[in-house]
């Protein structure tokens, strides 16, 4: 189920933020949109997720698995976002943070199983009862990704998810994130200003006005 952006442009008071953008992301693929801060990368993500601010007008079409997204409200699009900050809920322990994202299950046991399996994949077994603030930056980033994926999104948007991590951590988390996306087999769209964030061999688009460079 590919995510297709066709001729997307976003206008603020009649002037467009960037040149029309067309992009097809297949399942398990991560496409990257690059550009300096303020070029409209995050605005592009909010257009895809459905949280675009009313001051902007959106032109073009967005389809996920062939279904038109623009006519759907945010809560029915089923698209997840991973932000730069982990945004783990500070009043819930790690297990509850993950449980919050899991769609309703028949039993509590089943839910706990899902949580434990998820924690195992991230190498964080036994963390269910931990307080989020007791985790390291890298651990929080992994939990945050797991939480986004447990909501079973049909596509994932990544908004500079690695920029608050230091160099050594960044490498680890990056490969963890990309491998999980591949495993889930969903399309992902990454926006960043750091060329080192992009996955090898993925599509990279520079978001510029006037001259779009396709790599």
């Amino acid at each position: 189920m590919p995510l297709e952006l066709e001729n997307i442009s976003i206008l603020k008071q009649e002037s467009s933020l960037f040149d029309p953008l067309t992009l097809v992301i297949g399942p398990g693929e991560v496409a990257t949109v690059m550009g300096p801060s303020g070029c409209g990368k995050s605005t592009l993500l909010s257009a895809v997720s459905g949280s675009l601010d009313k001051v902007f007008t959106l032109k073009g079409s967005i389809r996920l698995d062939g279904q038109d997204m623009l006519s759907l409200p945010m809560e029915e699009r089923n698209i997840g976002i991973l932000f730069q900050d982990d945004l783990l809920f500070p009043h819930m322990d790690i297990g509850k943070n993950l449980a919050f994202a899991i769609p309703p299950q028949k039993s509590r046991v089943k839910k706990n199983q899902i949580i434990n399996t998820a924690l195992k994949t991230a190498g964080l077994e036994g963390f269910a009862n931990r307080d989020p603030s007791s985790l390291s930056g890298g651990q929080k980033a992994r939990i945050s990704l797991l939480r986004s994926l447990l909501a079973k999104p049909r596509a994932l948007l990544l908004d500079e998810p690695f920029s608050s991590l230091d160099q050594t951590l960044k490498k680890k988390i990056r490969s963890f994130v990309f491998s999980q996306i591949k495993k889930m087999n969903i399309p992902a769209l990454l926006v960043t200003h750091d060329p080192k964030d992009c996955p090898e061999g993925g599509v990279v688009i520079n978001l510029n006005k006037e001259d779009n460079l396709y790599a």
Partner: peptide, 27 residues
């Protein structure tokens, strides 16, 4: 509000976001 935005993306239900995330955080 990024917390409620994130919660909305995860849960897709306004009441549960309000009563399980926002108000408990503002307890």
């Amino acid at each position: 509000t990024r917390f409620t935005d994130q919660a909305m993306l995860l849960k897709r239900s306004y009441p549960s976001v309000l009563f399980r995330v926002k108000l408990p955080m503002l307890l």
